[in-house]
Design a protein around this nucleic acid. Structure first.
Lengths: 330, 330
DNA sequence: CCTTTCTGTGAATACGTATTCAAAGGGAAC
DNA sequence: GTTCCCTTTGAATACGTATTCACAGAAAGG
């Protein structure tokens, strides 16, 4: 591998001069700049970014720990984050959350020298939180958040749950089921709690336990809970799926069981994923107003924090809106 | 930032000993190992991977330049690649192909010190090919390939096109349209050529030019070409979409225009994406037999090449199979 | 002509680790 | 007791770059 010393020798100058030509050519005589640049071309020299990082103590790399891509929400956020980072001159190291244990991934990220971390994989009381806070680089959680706070970009999940409840109750549904995920995840917890709370406020009654389904968000588990809930008497006439990804599984299973959406069962999702607006789905969903997804917003803040270090926090909770499409009716 | 020297001082040993404890504790007296490990914990020391990379000349990082995630094919390959690399102790730097100019991304990857490169973004006569070959690290192209060869993992695209033609003609269709992408991409070129060739062999006639649609694979362009082709007299009764992603756009637009699939129009996709098997689609598609997607296969070979460097080439062309589902009929 | 300032350059060093080399000490074999 | 070898350790060095420091020479000002 050709080094800046080789270039220096070839151009008849010192290594320092080569370095200067690369970083601030104005400090070097024009003639010499030319000579060095010719040597660089002749030898096909590329600066070793590892050595650069060692001395500058910056890698221009961010780590992204994303939820799985079979959830279209993370397809959008990952795309936005990687492309935005690239446009700002940063590379993105991508990891995908494991269903089970994320310890190895966190270990990997912590030992890695990155300039910032974005993650959606945090749990409400995740013990990794303190380790992340103790790093001297910016860390932002998006979509999900931790009980203790930190930096996060989220949507108001409680309020979203309330919106779903009032929408479906407003359509006249009496029997509504909520299909969500594990309570240790802030999104699922908030959306469910908001839903249950508003349901009680508006109806004066509780949602029966058999209509509250916490899945592990896999297709199989969602299908199973739909089979269970649709065999109740009476079955629900409306379902609030805590994510669009779940909503799609739900609709799939309903169709497969011979039910029609929304004629037999209304379905309301959440996240307002691009796929949801799609012709084939036209899914009623809950999302925030802006054009930027949560991943992109958090990436913008992260890079801002990386470039202008200061003690400021990023704690953003966006207002939810209901996008009323074709999968819910009275 | 705490360094191995700090740990050494804290433990009353030399920096070399700390390094040895980290890399091969058997070389160090048990008592001292213990002391050093305690110091590591006490100071919360983490080895600086940048410095490690500088001396070892390995980053344990691979670069992935993937097609866009709105194509579900790349969702699957990206997931497989990242997770497989992680399981083997490698991190993945992810980039997404630009529709226009990929030069900046290649520059970035080339200047980066990675141990291997996977890319699907290559064009048949892409000038970047030579630069990539001249690197002294393994490079594998998956899905697409370059005219000049190199290392690649692909499906036999010509044969796939022939399969599609014989399948649709075998069902009795007389008017068949092919919707593909730019000819400078090996997949689109091969699939189209194979299709046209087999069509001519079996019917003795050429596919009319108005039934050959090269799009830029965006939803808008695909929709536009469907509008055009369905307004021909007679319109096609079958469509071969060169990727499942295109097939989904095609079916969407057909539905929207009031056509039924497969009653009015048969649609055959290609890539055999998981989404295609899905309840809502049940898309007839062409893919290869094995359970591993092209990205995963290429990742396995890449890491093999990285760990056992030798001059061997990887040139794999998989046999295509037709998966006959519900979107094609006579 | 002398001093001061400024510009351009090279030598030396730092970054944090792995590794080589030398040396010290202990044990075994004779 | 001497020789040899093995184990264990620390000192020194290398990796490739950015940067500091010192110095030389030129320009400027008197």
């Amino acid at each position: 591998m050709v080094s800046s010393r080789d270039v220096a020798k070839h151009a008849g100058v010192s290594q320092s001069t080569v370095s200067r030509v690369l970083n601030d050519p104005s400090k070097v005589n024009d003639q010499i700049v030319k000579k060095v640049q010719e040597a660089i071309k002749a030898l096909n020299y590329r600066p070793n970014s590892v050595a650069r990082s060692l001395v500058s103590n910056r890698t221009r790399t961010i780590a992204l720990i994303s939820g799985p891509l079979h959830n279209p929400f993370f397809v959008e956020t990952t795309t936005s984050i990687v492309n935005y980072a690239e446009s700002k001159g940063y590379r993105t190291m991508v990891f995908f959350e494991n269903t089970g244990e994320n310890k190895p991934i966190y270990e990997e990220v912590l030992s890695e020298r990155v300039d910032g971390i974005l993650l959606s994989s945090i749990f409400r009381d995740d013990p990794i939180f303190d380790d992340l806070q103790n790093l001297d680089i910016p860390v932002i959680m998006y979509n999900r958040r931790h009980n203790k706070g930190g930096n996060f970009v989220e949507i108001d999940n409680m309020q979203s749950g309330r919106l779903a409840a009032s929408h479906l109750l407003g359509l006249g549904h009496q029997h509504i089921c909520v299909v969500g995920g594990p309570d240790h995840t802030s999104t699922f917890y908030g959306r469910k709690q908001g839903f249950l709370e508003e349901y009680k406020t508006l109806t004066g009654t509780e949602v029966p336990p058999s209509f509250i389904k916490d899945t592990n968000t896999t297709e199989g588990a969602v299908h199973e809970s739909i089979v269970e809930v649709m065999s109740c008497t009476p079955p629900p006439s409306a379902i609030f799926a805590a994510t669009d990804a779940i909503a799609i599984y739900v609709m799939d299973k309903l169709q497969q069981m011979g039910f029609h959406v929304p004629e037999d069962v209304s379905v309301c999702g959440m996240d307002n994923v691009t796929l949801a607006k799609h012709q084939s789905f036209q899914l009623t969903s809950i999302g925030h107003k802006g054009p930027k997804n949560l991943g992109l917003i958090s990436a913008e803040y992260l890079i801002e924090m990386m470039e202008n270090p200061s003690e400021q926090q990023v704690q953003i909770t966006l207002e939810p809106v209901l996008y009323d499409r074709k999968t819910t009716k009275s």
